[in-house]
C-alpha cells in the first residue's frame, strides 16, 4: 500500500560531539507517531541529548507528530542538548509555519547546517561555563 512511516538512526561524531541523526520518511500522524516517540525516548534514556531529525522524505505531519517533537524538545534542552530539524519539504515546512511551531524549534536547510549548529552551541556552552564563575564576583 502506501509508505506509512519508517526511520533510520545513526550516531555521528562532529568535532568530538556525539550527534544522533534520525532520518524519517512517510507520514507522521496519529497512526504512526508512537514509532518516533519510542525511538526518541530510547535515545534520551541513553542520555543522548543532541538529536537531528532529518525530514527529507517526510510528506506530512499532524499535531500528533508535533506533540512528540515538542515533548522531547524540553527534555533535551533541560540537559544542555537540543532537537534540531533539517531538510523539510515545502509542504511540511508550511505546516510548521502555519501552526507557529517554526518559532519554537530550530529548523535547518540541511543536516550539515544542523550539525554545525551543534558545534556552535557547544562553543557557546563552553564559553558560558568559563565566564560565569568570574561573573559571580
Amino acid at each position: 500500500m502506501f509508505k506509512k512511516f519508517d526511520f533510520s538512526s545513526t550516531t555521528e561524531q562532529v568535532d568530538g560531539i556525539s550527534v544522533q541523526i534520525v532520518k524519517i520518511e512517510g507520514y507522521l500522524d496519529s497512526s504512526t507517531f508512537r514509532q518516533l516517540k519510542d525511538h526518541l525516548q530510547s535515545l534520551i534514556d541513553q542520555e543522548q541529548y543532541r538529536i537531528i531529525v532529518e525530514f527529507g522524505r517526510l510528506n506530512y505531519i499532524s499535531s500528533a507528530g508535533l506533540g512528540v517533537l515538542m515533548g522531547m524538545l524540553h527534555e533535551v534542552r533541560d540537559n544542555d542538548g537540543d532537537l534540531k530539524l533539517a531538510n523539510m519539504s515545502n509542504k511540511v515546512r508550511n505546516l510548521f509555519d502555519m501552526l507557529g511551531f517554526s518559532r519554537l524549534i530550530r529548523i535547518y536547510d540541511d543536516c550539515e547546517a544542523a550539525k554545525q549548529a551543534f558545534v556552535e552551541d557547544q562553543e557557546r556552552l563552553a564559553h558560558k561555563k568559563t565566564v560565569l564563575p568570574e561573573d559571580d564576583y
Binding site: S63, L66, G67, V68, M70, H74, L99, G100, F101
Partner: peptide, 15 residues
C-alpha cells in the same frame, strides 16, 4: 485558535 494560544509545551490536544 492557535494565535491566541501561548503554551506550546503541551504535547497533545491541538486538534
Amino acid at each position: 485558535a492557535l494565535h491566541e494560544f501561548t503554551d506550546r509545551t503541551r504535547k497533545r490536544g491541538y486538534g
